[in-house]
Amino acid sequence: MRLQALLVFSVLVLVVLNFEIWKKEKLKAEGQSVLLQLAPVDPRSLMQGDYMRLEYALEDMVTSEQLDKQDKRGHLVILPNENNVGSFVRFYDGEELAPKEMLIRYHKTNYDIQIVPHSFFFQEGHAKFYESARYGEFKCDSSGKHLLVALVNEKFKRIIPSDEEK
């Protein structure tokens, strides 16, 4: 009896884990790409161990008066420019989107909004590759779910660390 229950739980766990992978891979493959400018970060103080703290310029484009009226969690409407860099248009309120407009999820803290993630993980010792990061590349779906897939430099090139030049 206990072993049967164990079997059920185990199958359940593995199904959930793989389903989560599948969801992320789907978003990565089918999501629409957009760049978000990183807020100026000081690489010396913000590089910690094997991850980098991120902030987005988008988060500063919202005034506190606009913010006060919003719920704790919601979506921003953003519009990508010719370089595919998104900028804040308005808070989403269930209306029809204009062409090219996209949704991105945010949550509110006490004094500003945050777009997750606020950190980017990389392998120990790869910090030097990411110092030139200016944008985060996101994949978004129509419901506003998003996934940070890479960091991008000022020439709009994805940063791909290579171990050869050690």
């Binding site: 997750v116 606020h118 950190s119 980017f120 996934l147 940070l148």
Partner: peptide
């Protein structure tokens, strides 16, 4: 590993 690969970071 999942959190690192997909950079789900913040929460």
């Amino acid at each position: 590993v999942f959190g690192q690969i997909y950079q789900t970071g913040a929460d």
